[in-house]
């Protein structure tokens, strides 16, 4: 690419990055078939980039405050890796099911797509149930949001992730309700794909939470 057009002269028409994409011999996947779809997905990626910084901030705060237990239970005393491992397995499986949903969407198999999305929903909901049980357990052990800076930082980070899972489940619910009786169209496909991007991101954050909060908490 030449850096700039020569001054005062008309350059060649359109190296055309955008126009070229449409003319490729291979058709784009259905979620990228419309301009709205392409917008939605780049918007989702940008949103995820911003969210990464948001979570990074909460991680930083947690790392700075995780030893400020003020005499309350420490992470080592609190965390039960078996439970957390089960939660991790559930959430990561839900990432897999959402991939299956997207693959079926691309093959225009609306029924299979919805079945896999339902599975995703159920796995996410079970993860959330486990997390609720876990938090309840901690509160009984004296580890609360207000007990210490460690408590605030822990629930801010892990709870914020939980809120993302909750929001994802509401989103997926709306998606399933709306499309209960519909086929896969270029209008619907980017919506499903955007959800699956979001869901992968939420899972990825959990991988970091598992390592930084739980594993590091166990060895510290």
């Amino acid at each position: 690419m030449s850096l700039t057009a020569e001054p005062g002269r008309l350059g060649a028409a359109a190296p055309a990055a955008r126009a070229g994409a449409v003319e490729k011999t291979e058709a784009p996947p259905i979620e990228l078939a419309t301009q709205e779809g392409r917008n939605k997905l780049i918007g989702m990626w940008l949103f995820i980039a911003a969210e990464s910084v948001l979570f990074a901030s909460f991680f930083a705060v947690y790392l700075a405050l995780r030893h400020s237990t003020m005499g309350g239970p420490t992470g080592k005393e609190l965390f039960d890796l078996k439970l957390v491992f089960l939660a991790t397995a559930l959430l990561l499986s839900s990432s897999f099911t959402s991939v299956m949903a997207v693959l079926n969407m691309r093959r225009l198999q609306a029924g299979a797509m919805k079945a896999w999305l339902l599975a995703t929903w159920l796995l996410g909901a079970s993860f959330l149930a486990l997390e609720a049980y876990e938090f309840n357990h901690y509160v009984h052990m004296g580890h609360t949001f207000t007990s210490s800076a460690f408590g605030t930082a822990f629930y801010s980070l892990v709870g914020f992730h939980g809120a993302h899972v909750t929001f994802g489940l509401l989103w997926l619910f709306a998606l399933l309700v709306r499309n209960l009786r519909r086929e896969v169209t270029p209008y619907i496909a980017p919506k499903v794909y955007a959800f699956s991007l979001y869901w992968h991101f939420v899972d990825l954050v959990w991988v970091f939470i598992f390592s930084v909060v739980y594993l590091m908490g166990k060895v510290a």
Binding site: V61, A64, L65, S68, M70, F145, S148, A149, T152, S156
Partner: peptide
């Protein structure tokens, strides 16, 4: 701002040295 709101309105302690915050 979330942590600020937690500290102000929900009993959070991220910025409260008395509870180990900073």
């Amino acid at each position: 701002l979330f942590l600020m709101i937690y500290d102000q309105l929900f009993g959070g302690a991220a910025f409260d040295p008395a509870k180990g915050g900073n």
